[in-house]
Amino acid sequence: TTVHIGNVTYHFDNPEEAVKWAKEMAEKLGLRIEIHGDTIRVE
């Protein structure tokens, strides 16, 4: 599972961890997340 924040990509072996981490980052940055299969974007 990959999480994209701007130009930076993070890789997670556990999809649930990826979603949890992306949600925390989105809250901190005042952004929202979009999930497309195994790709998560924070925008």
Results as ranks from 00 to 15, higher is better:
Arg32Pro: 14
Val3Cys: 02
Met25Glu: 09
Glu24Ala: 11
Val19Thr: 07
Tyr10His: 07
Arg32Ile: 15
Tyr10Arg: 09
Lys23Arg: 13
Lys20Tyr: 08
Glu16Gln: 12
Asp38Thr: 12
Glu17Cys: 04
Lys23Met: 14
Asn14Pro: 01
Glu17Ser: 08
Ile33Gly: 02
Ala26Ile: 02
Glu27Thr: 07
Ile40Val: 05
Arg41Gln: 06
Lys23Ala: 10
Trp21Met: 04
Glu43Gly: 15
Ile35Asn: 04
Gly30Pro: 03
Thr39Ile: 12
Glu16Trp: 10
Thr2Glu: 07
Leu31Tyr: 15
Ala18Phe: 02
Tyr10Ala: 05
Asn14Met: 07
Ala22Ser: 04
His4Val: 15
Asn14Val: 09
Ala22Leu: 02
Val42Leu: 15
Thr39Arg: 05
Thr1Gln: 06
Ile35Cys: 04
Asp38Val: 05
Asp13Tyr: 09
Glu27Trp: 06
Ala26Ser: 07
Glu27Met: 07
Glu24Trp: 13
Arg41Val: 14
Thr39Phe: 06
Arg32His: 15
Arg41Glu: 05
Thr2Ser: 09
Pro15Thr: 13
Leu29Tyr: 11
Trp21Lys: 02
Leu31Asn: 06
Thr2Ile: 12
Leu29Glu: 10
His4Pro: 01
Met25Gln: 13
Arg41Ala: 05
His36Tyr: 14
Ile35Gly: 03
Thr9Gly: 06
Ile5Asn: 02
Ile40Asn: 01
Ile35Lys: 05
Glu24Met: 13
Pro15Met: 15
Glu27Asn: 09
Glu17Thr: 11
Ala18Ile: 01
Glu43Ile: 15
Val3Arg: 00
His4Tyr: 14
Val8Tyr: 12
Met25Ser: 04
Ile35Val: 11
Asp13Lys: 09
His4Lys: 10
His36Arg: 09
Thr9Met: 12
Pro15Glu: 10
Lys28Val: 09
Arg32Val: 15
Ala18Tyr: 01
His11Thr: 10
Thr39Trp: 05
Ile40Lys: 00
Val42Ala: 04
Glu24Ile: 10
Val8Met: 14
Glu24Leu: 10
Lys23Val: 12
Thr39Gly: 05
Glu24Lys: 10
Pro15Lys: 15
Lys23Ile: 13
Lys23Gln: 14
Ile35Gln: 07
Thr2Met: 09
Ile40Arg: 00
Tyr10Thr: 05
Asn7Gln: 12
His11Phe: 14
Val3Lys: 00
Thr9Cys: 04
Arg32Phe: 10
Val3Leu: 03
Thr9Asp: 08
His11Ala: 07
His4Ile: 15
Ile35Tyr: 13
Pro15Gly: 12
His36Gly: 05
Glu24His: 11
Ala18Gly: 08
Ile5Thr: 03
His4Asp: 05
Glu34Lys: 06
Ile40Ala: 01
Lys28Gln: 13
Thr2Arg: 08
Asn7Arg: 10
Gly37Thr: 04
Val8Lys: 15
Val42Cys: 03
Trp21Ala: 03
Val8Glu: 14
Ala18Glu: 00
Thr39Ala: 07
Asn7Tyr: 10
Val19Arg: 08
Lys23Asn: 12
His36Leu: 13
Glu16Ala: 13
Glu34Asn: 07
Ile35Phe: 12
Trp21Ser: 01
Leu29Cys: 05
Val19Pro: 00
Asp13Pro: 09
His4Ala: 09
Thr9Arg: 09
Ile40Phe: 01
Thr1Val: 14
Lys23Leu: 14
Glu27Ala: 09
Trp21Asp: 00
Asn7Pro: 06
Phe12Ile: 02
Glu24Pro: 02
Trp21Gly: 00
Glu34Ala: 06
Lys20Ser: 12
Asp13Leu: 11
Met25Ile: 13
Asp38Lys: 05
Gly37Met: 04
Leu31Trp: 15
Thr9Pro: 06
Val3Asp: 01
Lys28Met: 13
Ile33Arg: 00
Ile5Ala: 03
His4Glu: 12
Tyr10Leu: 07
Ile5Glu: 01
Tyr10Gly: 02
Asp13Phe: 09
Ile33Cys: 04
Ile5Leu: 11
Thr2Gly: 03
Asp13Arg: 07
Ala26His: 02
Phe12Ser: 00
Gly30Gln: 08
Ala18Val: 01
Thr9Tyr: 08
Ile5Asp: 02
Glu43Val: 15
Tyr10Phe: 10
Ala22Glu: 00
Gly6Ala: 10
His11Tyr: 14
Val42Phe: 07
Glu27Cys: 04
Val19His: 11
His11Trp: 14
Phe12Arg: 00
Lys20His: 10
Val19Leu: 15
Leu31Met: 15
Val42Pro: 01
His11Arg: 12
Thr2His: 09
Gly6Phe: 13
Ile33His: 04
Leu31Lys: 06
Trp21His: 03
Ile33Lys: 00
Lys23Asp: 05
Val8Trp: 09
Val42Asn: 01
His11Lys: 12
Thr39Val: 14
His4Thr: 09
Glu34Pro: 02
Met25Thr: 07
Asn7Thr: 11
Ile35His: 07
Thr2Trp: 13
Gly30Met: 06
Ala22Trp: 01
Ala22Phe: 02
Asp13Cys: 06
His11Ile: 10
Val42Lys: 01
Thr1Leu: 07
Phe12Lys: 00
His36Asp: 15
Val8Leu: 13
Ala18Gln: 00
Val8Cys: 05
Leu29Pro: 03
Lys20Gly: 08
Glu24Thr: 09
Glu24Phe: 13
Glu17Met: 10
Ile35Ser: 04
Asn7Ala: 13
Glu24Gly: 07
Pro15His: 15
Arg41Met: 12
Asp13Ser: 12
Gly30Phe: 06
Gly30Ile: 02
Gly37His: 05
Ala22Ile: 03
Ala22Lys: 00
Asn14Arg: 09
Thr2Pro: 03
Val8His: 14
Thr2Asp: 07
Val3Gly: 01
Ala18Thr: 02
Val3Trp: 01
Glu16Ile: 12
Lys20Gln: 13
Leu29Ser: 07
Thr9Lys: 13
Lys20Ile: 11
Thr39Tyr: 07
Asn7Gly: 14
His36Val: 14
Phe12Cys: 02
Thr9Ile: 14
Gly6Thr: 05
Ile33Met: 10
Trp21Asn: 01
Glu27Pro: 01
Glu27Leu: 09
Ile40Met: 02
Lys28Arg: 12
Glu43Thr: 13
Pro15Ala: 14
Val8Asp: 14
Lys20Asn: 12
Gly37Trp: 03
Glu16Asp: 13
Asp38Pro: 05
Asn7Cys: 08
Thr2Gln: 09
Phe12Asn: 00
Asn7His: 12
Lys28Glu: 13
Gly6Ser: 08
Ala22Val: 03
Phe12Trp: 04
Ile33Asp: 03
Leu31Asp: 06
Trp21Gln: 02
Arg32Asp: 15
Arg41Asn: 08
His4Met: 14
Thr39Lys: 06
Met25Trp: 06
Glu27Val: 07
Lys23Ser: 13
Asn7Phe: 10
Tyr10Trp: 07
Ile33Thr: 04
Ile33Val: 15
Leu29Trp: 07
Asn7Val: 09
Ile35Arg: 03
Lys20Cys: 03
Trp21Phe: 14
Asn14Gln: 08
Pro15Arg: 15
Glu34Met: 05
Asn7Met: 10
Glu34Arg: 06
Glu27Gly: 07
Arg41His: 13
Glu27Tyr: 07
Ile5Lys: 02
Glu17Gln: 10
Thr1Trp: 11
Glu16Arg: 09
Arg32Cys: 05
Ile5His: 05
Asp13Ala: 12
Asp38Leu: 06
Gly37Pro: 04
Glu17Gly: 05
Ala18His: 00
Ile40Tyr: 01
Phe12Glu: 00
Ala26Leu: 02
Thr1Met: 15
Trp21Cys: 03
Glu17Pro: 03
Asp38His: 11
Glu43Lys: 06
Thr2Lys: 13
Glu16Phe: 11
Asn7Glu: 12
Thr1Phe: 08
Pro15Asn: 13
Tyr10Asn: 03
Asn14Ser: 12
Val19Ile: 15
Pro15Val: 12
Val42Glu: 02
Val19Cys: 10
Ile35Met: 08
Glu27Phe: 08
Val3Asn: 00
Arg41Trp: 15
Glu43Ala: 08
Ile40Ser: 01
Ala26Asn: 02
Ile35Pro: 03
Ile33Ala: 06
Arg32Gln: 15
Ala18Trp: 01
Tyr10Ile: 11
Gly37Lys: 06
Glu17Asp: 11
Gly30Thr: 03
Pro15Asp: 06
Lys23Phe: 11
Thr2Val: 11
Thr39Glu: 12
Ile40His: 01
Gly30Arg: 00
Asn14Phe: 08
Ile40Thr: 01
Glu24Ser: 10
Ala22Tyr: 01
Trp21Leu: 03
Gly37Ile: 03
His36Ser: 11
Ala26Arg: 02
Lys20Thr: 12
Ala26Cys: 03
Lys20Met: 13
Val3Gln: 00
Val42Gln: 01
Glu34Leu: 05
Asp38Gly: 07
Gly6Asn: 14
Ala26Gly: 06
Asp13Trp: 09
Glu34Thr: 13
Ala18Asp: 00
Gly6Pro: 02
Thr1Asp: 02
Ala26Lys: 02
Asn7Ser: 13
Ile40Gly: 01
Glu24Arg: 08
Ile35Trp: 08
Glu17Arg: 07
His11Met: 10
Val42Gly: 02
Asn14Lys: 10
Lys28Ser: 12
Lys20Pro: 03
Ile40Gln: 01
Thr39Asn: 07
Ile35Thr: 06
His36Asn: 12
Trp21Pro: 00
Ile5Ser: 03
Leu29Arg: 04
Glu43Met: 10
